[in-house]
Design a protein around this nucleic acid. Structure first.
Lengths: 332, 332
DNA sequence: CTGTTAGCGCCTTCAT
DNA sequence: ATGAAGGCGCTAACAG
């Protein structure tokens, strides 16, 4: 016998029929196949090193047991953990996860159909516009870190609460003049951060807010932070939409001879690896990326099961490190 | 008609038989089907939004057109681009890529069989021991950034040349006392870096080398770099196995009041995002991650095609930034 | 309790 | 130039 053993080979080896093999190996034989026979089948399968042919099973069942995870960028350290959490939960249910990078570019980016994995049972779309899943009409989908009021179920991240926690922390330190170094990315998560930030600053007595947008990269962030620092009303604290942006803010500060945190406080968002690689270590909001992937996958599996997953929001957590301090004297 | 249209539906719509549809859509109809019929079939397929069923095709053809990419970590910013390069080339040939994170833990880590994607045509294994693909006997595999003398074809990275370039650069600056902050990871790529480094230092007149091992994380790297700096023969340049390790080296230096690069030069490896986020920006060796994925996939496709891919090595490139300078006076 | 049978959708000879 | 038929490996009715 050359090639992989089939269930027929196992049946022959065990001296039973194919259907018995299928029943036993499918785990639904209790009360229908004698324990002795079942044991024989198992032994035969083990002896032959049998593994079911996935394509055949998929064809028969009309299901692929595969979920597509769409992320805006694979380079960002945020999505590795999202994948890991999703894959872990999926594996427990016999599902696989294929990841597809959907560049969040303006305009009609390459259709997701360009992905060779058109055979998909469901979609998990992280941090992108709901339109992204529009390309798969009828395919069950769950959005991650997205507008909870959208047409598809979603698992959210407490980004608004995170922003409020940042401002509360900064206000308690004595800051009133805030600068928002904002990611110029049209995603719900960033709009949400901006809105929460503006509202929170509005609630601080004497609070003032200036804003500069940038792309999510260090150079662009440095330029944006620089514009704020050189402006007519330089802030004493720079609130950044993302840890990477904070790295740019650090650079802008140092280029102007400003010490972080003595002369300028800086905060980040996400708490990826970068946050502790920087000096000083970054005060930021930790987002539970792996839990997000896991909860999203759980919701999607529930959806595939015919259920109706309840909306969930996973809270962020303010991690105070060394990039924030009271504003310099004379600036309050 | 509910559900996805099948080739039979297309046949009916076009008024032809299934086999004609298969011929036309399979692209091998020239001289066997009249152009008019072919056009009709195409139109019908388009009208119905027909897409071939992957499971059925896989079953019939005995191939999955799917490749497994095994990486040691999804969190490292290095592997995102590897995936991207591999997926790009794969897509051009109608192949999909599923990524599997194989934690490079000591001992018998979870077998790759735990991966739900047992249906795989080939394997691309990046930066790991050749044993990793041992779990898939008979499956064509290509190793990336691994021992070129192993039993399977591989695409290498010029890490040894990179190390030599670093030492040449540092030696030209006047350094003779080097410290290697080494990743304590049992991978060919790190052994290769260590060997090349030792050999290069040996060729520097008066060259001396001390070494400390660490895990690939900032805190561990900081401790290791600290041990070197506090040792009896403190180096004037710290050569790090990885950009992330360099971040730890920066911290160790600053904790001791040492300025980089005035009092201490530091180099990295990989040139990931972190390299320009740090301050000062890191002198490092850029490794072409995306090219690596692309070249690896090209080699694997050639292998699947019955060919015998020639071994390749992609060169790294020394990127001189601001973390290296001449050693402080009196230390030569 | 176990075996027989009928497809899932596709591709590929073979016959027309 | 086109159609009919068979089977890839599996599962789930239905018989026995």
């Amino acid at each position: 016998m050359t090639g992989r053993p089939t269930s027929r080979d196992v049946a022959r080896e065990a001296g039973v029929s194919q259907s018995t093999v299928s029943l036993v190996l499918g785990g639904k034989w209790t009360g229908r196949v004698s324990p002795a026979t079942a044991a024989g089948v198992r032994a035969a399968a083990a002896r032959l090193g049998y593994r079911p042919n996935r394509a055949a099973r998929n064809l028969r069942l009309g299901t692929t047991r595969t979920v597509l995870l769409m992320v805006p960028s694979l380079t960002s350290p945020f999505f590795g953990p999202v994948y890991r959490g999703a894959a872990r939960v999926a594996a427990r249910h016999g599902f696989g996860v294929v990841v597809y990078e959907w560049p969040d570019l303006p305009g009609p980016a390459g259709s997701p159909f360009a992905a060779p994995h058109e055979a998909i049972d469901g979609i998990l779309a992280s941090s992108m516009a709901v339109e992204a899943v529009g390309g798969f009409p009828g395919t069950p989908a769950v959005m991650l870190d997205s507008d909870p009021d959208g047409p598809v179920p979603s698992v959210g991240l407490g980004v608004a609460d995170g922003m409020r926690a940042i401002i509360a922390h900064l206000a308690a330190l004595g800051h009133t003049r805030f600068g928002h170094v904002a990611a110029d990315v049209d995603q719900w998560t960033f709009h949400s951060r901006a809105d929460a930030l503006a509202a929170a600053v509005g609630a601080v007595p004497g609070g003032a807010l200036v804003r500069a947008g940038c792309a999510i990269d260090v150079a662009s962030a440095k330029a944006a932070a620089g514009r704020l620092l050189d402006g007519p009303h330089p802030p004493t604290a720079l609130v950044c939409d993302d840890d990477q942006i904070s790295a740019g803010a650090y650079k802008a500060a140092r280029a102007r001879g400003l010490d972080v945190p003595r002369d300028l406080s800086v905060t980040g968002f996400d708490d990826v690896l970068l946050a502790t690689a920087l000096e000083p270590e970054l005060t930021t909001v930790r987002l539970p990326a792996e839990d997000l992937g896991a909860a999203g996958m759980a919701a999607l599996l529930e959806l595939l099961d015919g259920g109706c997953p309840a909306p969930r929001t996973l809270p962020g957590e303010l991690i105070v490190r060394s990039s924030t301090a009271a504003p310099p004297r004379g600036t309050r």
